[in-house]
Nucleic acid binder design. Structure first.
Lengths: 184, 184
DNA sequence: GTCTATAGACGGATAGAC
DNA sequence: GTCTATCCGTCTATAGAC
């Protein structure tokens, strides 16, 4: 499963064949089918393991003293976003993958929203003006978008965007006294 | 090329083989290689054609009386975002695709930023507080993210997010939805 | 331009030895 | 559990007829 994830990240899901996975894992192709009936089952196992680890980290982030930044950092991990992009593409034509990825995305959204709600409320942000679900969507999705662009080699505007995000983190998350004034 | 794009959208890039493309186009596989030396060349041609059409629409959007909403609408087109996601995944392990996609993404960013700069400045928005490049990134990337999620079947928070975006469109000086209704 | 036919590589998956 | 060996399908790409 480790080998599968690595190949998917480095060369795309189409390159994750039973032969290549086995070679990287140091075993023979037939052994892959001893543990996983089909390649789809292997992909699903990789997805579930990644989702489980990711959700665990996210539950930790909820209790973080700066959940917004924790969310940003988590979704800026190139290893994570690379895999996620591959699974998104895979989900396009593998029904089972799509179903699993959808379930995962919805659980993530719930957790993210909960974390952001706590953070915003704790700092007196108007939850009608800044709905937690919308804020969490911006933070996690933009972090992923920037990561995807970085992988592609596009970094134009990234510096300015990070500064832009930082300003809002200050306002919404770890509000310093200076930023409280700005909010008013 | 039309058949290739359709298959990529519906079944993923890995399904766009010379056989299937030819079948959908109503010709024989060998003919594909008469027009395109390799499958990579075909993918590149599809990418270039799509990029050209997309850039043309974007230049139009600059002169639109509501560039921000035009940007949002353009990047909410499921046909466009589906293809874009596939090319992102393809770029992971096809160097030529990656180079082309990067060049395209950078030209898009320049155009978007120009359009947003004009729009914000025209309505007296503070460009230091809301850097045009950051605003354009949020608008286009979030539109794509929502489209990708919709394709996956995830719509949680989408309604709230759209309202959130509408409020900011209004605040940034674009005609409010009420005004647009009046005009219509 | 469009076709038939095919070479040659690689893929998923299975049978059966050890 | 892990292997060797193999079946059979699909893929890219090419040769050459029409």
């Amino acid at each position: 499963m480790e080998a599968t994830a690595q190949i998917m990240r480095d060369q795309g899901y189409a390159a994750a064949t039973s032969r290549r996975v086995a070679a990287l894992a140091g075993v023979k192709p037939a052994l892959v089918y001893y543990y996983f009936a089909t390649m789809d089952d292997l992909f699903l196992a990789v997805l579930r393991a990644g989702a489980k680890a990711s959700l665990a980290r996210m539950r930790q982030a909820i209790t973080d003293d700066d959940p917004l930044r924790a969310l940003w950092v988590m979704n800026s991990d190139l290893r994570f976003t690379g895999l996620y992009t591959e699974f998104m593409a895979l989900a396009n034509h593998r029904k089972a993958i799509g179903t699993e990825l959808k379930a995962y995305a919805e659980r993530v959204r719930d957790l993210e929203t909960a974390a952001v709600t706590v953070a915003l409320r704790a700092h007196g942000v108007d939850l009608d003006e800044y709905p937690p679900v919308a804020v969490s969507m911006v933070v996690s999705q933009m972090a992923r978008s920037l990561s995807n662009e970085t992988t592609l080699g596009v970094t134009e505007g990234h510096g300015e965007f990070r500064k832009f995000v930082e300003r809002h983190f200050d306002r919404f998350g770890s509000a310093s006294s200076a930023e409280r004034t700005q909010r008013a």
